[in-house]
Write a protein that binds this DNA or RNA. Structure first.
Length: 290
DNA sequence: TCCCAGGCGGTAG
DNA sequence: CTACCGCATGGG
């Protein structure tokens, strides 16, 4: 069992990080800690006073490095928040509301499959499907007396037929997952090559070749795995909040996505992706309470 | 029950 | 190029 402890870490709140819509495999426990799977590691994270305690089981990774990389702990969020807060009072308020948000650096393959599943779907069901895929095609890990599963590797998932995938509850997304898995397996799309591109748009163009990856899904992958903070994924919630705050179009559904992209680019100083997460979390959580 | 969900791909105009 | 539609499934 490995352990890593952070002390007095600013901009870190488990609820904000895990409930802001960027990830699907972290689950809140009765004691308020979260348990999730990163690569082949099962990890429990718990906040205690000024400490954040990571406990985990892993084989070959340097635990501390795994954690610091995944939670992007070498990035200074105070600097980002300072810049964004000065833009306007909406951002100021959303940042106060979700002050502990951090953008995770998730596994690229897992992120691609997860966000293909996210299309025209809701978050509880997305999580359910991903758990089922993992239980059927991932590897079993025992942790604290319970059984967990790694996210399926590309090789493992490629053994599933379209019918097998359909039984995972994927619905019409079965073919997309099947095709994309094959494209990545046979290196028609090379994930390592994408990772090493230095231009966000070049990365996006490659991702868009995958079946089931359109503009929104590509931007989510760029933001939540490749840490491209300048992208701005637009979904119904983001469109809703942007219209409410800045556009004021009577018919929200008619708000043009290109117009929103342009607005975000001008307004958010190259930090659109982070601004998007604060706004998304703010709007969505307030919506739940109402 | 019925609406809708972090959209995408296909087709028509 | 833009506009629209079908899609599987189950959560709320």
């Amino acid at each position: 069992m490995e352990q890593y402890i952070l002390e007095n870490q600013n901009s870190f709140n488990l609820v904000h990080i895990f409930e802001c819509g960027q990830c699907f495999r972290w689950n809140k426990q009765e004691d308020k800690s979260y348990v999730g799977v990163i690569k082949d590691a099962v990890i429990r994270v718990k906040e205690e006073k000024n400490k954040i305690i990571f406990t985990g089981k892993t084989n070959n990774k340097d635990f501390k490095t795994l954690i610091r990389n995944y939670f992007d702990l070498d990035t200074d969020y105070l600097e980002y928040k300072d810049k964004l807060t000065k833009i306007d009072n909406y951002l100021k308020e959303s940042i106060e509301f979700g002050n502990g948000i951090r953008i995770l650096k998730q596994d690229l393959w897992e992120c691609i499959i997860s966000f293909i599943i996210s299309a025209n779907n809701n978050i509880p069901r997305i999580k359910k499907i991903i758990e089922k895929l993992s239980a059927n095609y991932g590897e079993k890990i025992e942790f604290e007396g319970k059984t967990y599963y790694t996210f399926p590797s590309c090789e493992s998932l490629s053994k599933a037929t379209i019918e097998d995938l359909r039984m995972m509850g994927l619905g019409f997304r079965d073919k997309r997952i099947y095709n994309t898995t094959k494209m990545i397996l046979n290196k028609e799309i090379d994930l390592e090559k994408i990772r090493n591109l230095n231009n966000t748009n070049d990365m996006r163009q490659e991702l868009l070749k995958l079946d089931g990856v359109g503009p929104k899904v590509a931007d989510c992958i760029l933001l939540f795995s490749l840490n491209r903070l300048d992208v701005f994924p637009i979904d119904v919630w983001v469109r809703r909040v942007m219209n409410e705050l800045y556009i004021h179009n009577e018919n929200e559904e008619k708000v043009n996505k290109d117009e929103l992209q342009k607005l975000a680019k001008e307004k958010f100083l190259g930090l659109s992706g982070i601004a998007q997460q604060y706004l998304f979390y703010w709007k969505r959580e307030l919506g739940k309470g109402a």
